[in-house]
Amino acid sequence: MSNWKIIVADAVAVMAMTAIVAGQSANPQAGASKKASKDASNQVHHIAMPQYPGAIMQGPNLEVYQKDCLICHTGRYVSMQPRFSKAVWQSEVTKMVDAYGAPISDADQALIVEYLVAVKGVEAPVPTAATPK
């Protein structure tokens, strides 16, 4: 029934990987809670960004959506939206390509619209899965 599935592992893995890649603490809270740091000369100001990628909504063509859309922004750009018609989602995808230069083929664009309609379309069933734990 529900086409949502909360993958907490996704969030965890992204946080862990990012921490390693960035050479930071693997504890996401360590970077979040402390103040900005400065080096000895007091001139370099730095913050360590925490990661809150959230749950990925399951739907058709998920891997295309992930490959093409999440280069520039998190999945929360979709998950925070209310439900919209296919026409609205189509125009959003077109905007990403035309205005923001997203390198998405015509075929992929159609697949992504399908995903968006499935997870946030007006015709899709209301999800039963609740908030991430």
Binding site: A9, A16, T18, Q66
Partner: peptide, 17 residues
């Protein structure tokens, strides 16, 4: 880009990591 690459291991990411 690096943040994006780290995000690519998303589905089933925990096992892969």
């Amino acid at each position: 880009r690096r943040r994006f690459i780290s995000g690519l291991i998303s589905v089933g990411g925990l096992a892969a990591a």
